[in-house]
Protein backbone atom coordinates (compact mmCIF):
# COMPACT_ATOMS: atom_id res chain seq x y z
CA UNK A 1 0.00 0.00 0.00
CA UNK A 2 2.78 2.42 0.97
CA UNK A 3 4.52 2.13 -2.38
CA UNK A 4 1.32 2.95 -4.20
CA UNK A 5 0.64 5.94 -1.96
CA UNK A 6 4.18 7.34 -2.34
CA UNK A 7 4.15 6.89 -6.07
CA UNK A 8 0.82 8.66 -6.52
CA UNK A 9 1.64 11.40 -4.00
CA UNK A 10 4.87 12.24 -5.78
CA UNK A 11 2.97 12.37 -9.06
CA UNK A 12 0.80 15.09 -7.46
CA UNK A 13 -2.45 13.34 -6.46
CA UNK A 14 -3.74 15.28 -3.40
CA UNK A 15 -5.72 12.28 -2.17
CA UNK A 16 -2.51 10.22 -2.01
CA UNK A 17 -0.71 13.16 -0.34
CA UNK A 18 -3.18 13.01 2.53
CA UNK A 19 -2.75 9.25 2.88
CA UNK A 20 1.02 9.68 2.91
CA UNK A 21 0.70 12.48 5.47
CA UNK A 22 -1.34 10.12 7.67
CA UNK A 23 1.47 7.54 7.47
CA UNK A 24 4.07 10.23 8.27
CA UNK A 25 2.07 11.30 11.35
CA UNK A 26 2.02 7.72 12.60
CA UNK A 27 5.83 7.67 12.18
CA UNK A 28 6.25 11.04 13.98
CA UNK A 29 7.48 12.75 10.82
CA UNK A 30 5.32 15.78 11.36
CA UNK A 31 7.22 18.27 9.18
CA UNK A 32 6.90 16.01 6.18
CA UNK A 33 3.20 15.47 6.93
CA UNK A 34 2.58 19.22 7.17
CA UNK A 35 4.36 19.84 3.88
CA UNK A 36 2.23 17.23 2.13
CA UNK A 37 -1.01 18.54 3.66
CA UNK A 38 -0.11 22.12 2.69
CA UNK A 39 0.45 21.00 -0.90
CA UNK A 40 -2.89 19.16 -0.98
CA UNK A 41 -4.71 22.09 0.71
CA UNK A 42 -3.23 24.35 -1.93
CA UNK A 43 -5.08 22.21 -4.48
CA UNK A 44 -8.33 23.04 -2.59
CA UNK A 45 -8.54 19.54 -1.13
CA UNK A 46 -10.83 20.09 1.87
CA UNK A 47 -9.71 17.23 4.18
CA UNK A 48 -6.12 18.45 3.86
CA UNK A 49 -6.97 21.97 5.05
CA UNK A 50 -8.78 20.89 8.23
CA UNK A 51 -6.19 18.20 9.09
CA UNK A 52 -3.28 20.62 8.70
CA UNK A 53 -5.09 23.28 10.76
CA UNK A 54 -5.55 20.77 13.60
CA UNK A 55 -1.88 19.76 13.58
CA UNK A 56 -0.74 23.38 13.64
CA UNK A 57 -3.26 24.17 16.37
CA UNK A 58 -2.00 21.26 18.51
CA UNK A 59 1.54 22.55 18.03
CA UNK A 60 0.48 25.97 19.32
CA UNK A 61 1.01 27.72 15.99
CA UNK A 62 -2.30 29.58 16.08
CA UNK A 63 -1.74 32.14 13.27
CA UNK A 64 -0.87 29.40 10.77
CA UNK A 65 -3.65 27.14 12.09
CA UNK A 66 -6.18 29.94 11.56
CA UNK A 67 -5.06 30.34 7.95
CA UNK A 68 -5.93 26.72 7.26
CA UNK A 69 -9.10 26.72 9.37
CA UNK A 70 -10.21 29.63 7.18
CA UNK A 71 -9.29 27.72 4.05
CA UNK A 72 -11.37 24.75 5.34
CA UNK A 73 -14.29 27.11 6.05
CA UNK A 74 -14.11 28.43 2.50
CA UNK A 75 -14.28 24.84 1.29
CA UNK A 76 -17.43 24.30 3.42
CA UNK A 77 -16.06 22.49 6.48
CA UNK A 78 -18.54 22.80 9.36
CA UNK A 79 -16.08 21.66 12.06
CA UNK A 80 -13.63 24.39 11.07
CA UNK A 81 -16.46 26.94 11.35
CA UNK A 82 -17.11 25.82 14.92
CA UNK A 83 -13.44 25.99 15.89
CA UNK A 84 -13.01 29.50 14.49
CA UNK A 85 -15.94 31.01 16.37
CA UNK A 86 -14.88 29.27 19.58
CA UNK A 87 -11.39 30.72 19.14
CA UNK A 88 -12.50 34.26 18.30
CA UNK A 89 -15.96 34.85 19.78
CA UNK A 90 -15.36 38.61 19.97
CA UNK A 91 -13.71 39.15 16.63
CA UNK A 92 -16.26 40.60 14.24
CA UNK A 93 -14.12 40.03 11.19
CA UNK A 94 -13.86 36.27 11.86
CA UNK A 95 -17.55 35.99 12.72
CA UNK A 96 -18.49 37.81 9.51
CA UNK A 97 -16.17 35.60 7.51
CA UNK A 98 -17.81 32.41 8.81
CA UNK A 99 -21.30 33.87 8.42
CA UNK A 100 -20.57 34.83 4.83
CA UNK A 101 -19.52 31.26 4.05
CA UNK A 102 -22.64 29.87 5.72
CA UNK A 103 -24.88 32.22 3.77
CA UNK A 104 -23.38 30.96 0.51
CA UNK A 105 -25.42 27.80 0.99
CA UNK A 106 -29.16 27.48 0.87
CA UNK A 107 -30.22 25.81 4.10
CA UNK A 108 -33.86 25.14 4.72
CA UNK A 109 -34.27 22.78 7.62
CA UNK A 110 -37.85 23.77 8.37
CA UNK A 111 -39.68 21.84 5.72
CA UNK A 112 -43.33 20.97 5.55
CA UNK A 113 -44.68 17.46 5.16
CA UNK A 114 -45.91 18.07 1.63
CA UNK A 115 -43.39 15.93 -0.21
CA UNK A 116 -43.74 12.87 1.99
CA UNK A 117 -44.65 10.42 -0.72
CA UNK A 118 -43.21 12.31 -3.64
CA UNK A 119 -41.13 9.76 -5.50
CA UNK A 120 -37.52 10.72 -5.80
CA UNK A 121 -37.66 13.70 -3.48
CA UNK A 122 -36.41 13.83 0.07
CA UNK A 123 -38.99 12.60 2.49
CA UNK A 124 -39.71 14.26 5.79
CA UNK A 125 -38.48 11.42 7.94
CA UNK A 126 -35.18 11.10 6.15
CA UNK A 127 -32.00 12.17 7.87
CA UNK A 128 -29.45 12.77 5.14
CA UNK A 129 -25.87 13.98 5.60
CA UNK A 130 -26.83 17.21 3.80
CA UNK A 131 -29.67 17.78 6.25
CA UNK A 132 -27.35 17.10 9.21
CA UNK A 133 -24.82 19.62 7.90
CA UNK A 134 -27.57 22.18 7.30
CA UNK A 135 -28.73 21.86 10.93
CA UNK A 136 -25.13 22.34 12.10
CA UNK A 137 -24.63 25.42 9.92
CA UNK A 138 -27.88 26.88 11.24
CA UNK A 139 -26.64 26.34 14.82
CA UNK A 140 -23.35 28.09 14.04
CA UNK A 141 -25.18 30.94 12.31
CA UNK A 142 -27.35 31.54 15.35
CA UNK A 143 -24.36 31.34 17.68
CA UNK A 144 -22.64 34.05 15.62
CA UNK A 145 -25.73 36.27 15.62
CA UNK A 146 -26.00 35.92 19.41
CA UNK A 147 -22.31 36.74 19.87
CA UNK A 148 -22.65 39.80 17.67
CA UNK A 149 -25.77 40.94 19.51
CA UNK A 150 -23.96 40.56 22.87
CA UNK A 151 -21.01 42.54 21.55
CA UNK A 152 -23.28 45.32 20.29
Amino acid sequence: MRELIEQWASAGDPNAMIKLAELCIKEDRLDEAKKLLAQAADKNYRPAAINLARILHDEGNLPEAVTFYKKAVELGDVKAMNVLIDLFPNDNETLDFVLENINKRYDNIYITSAGRFAFGSMRVEEYTPQYGEAVERRRIRNKILQLKAKEA
Binding site: W8, D13, P14, K43, N44, Y45, R46, P47, G76
Partner: peptide
Protein backbone atom coordinates in the same frame (compact mmCIF):
# COMPACT_ATOMS: atom_id res chain seq x y z
CA UNK B 1 -22.52 16.30 -4.61
CA UNK B 2 -20.72 17.26 -1.41
CA UNK B 3 -17.47 15.52 -2.42
CA UNK B 4 -17.67 16.17 -6.17
CA UNK B 5 -14.34 17.99 -6.14
CA UNK B 6 -12.42 15.29 -4.25
CA UNK B 7 -13.91 12.41 -6.25
CA UNK B 8 -13.33 14.05 -9.62
CA UNK B 9 -9.78 15.02 -8.71
CA UNK B 10 -9.01 11.39 -7.88
CA UNK B 11 -10.65 10.06 -11.03
CA UNK B 12 -8.54 12.47 -13.06
CA UNK B 13 -5.38 11.10 -11.48
Amino acid sequence: HEYFFEARTKLGW
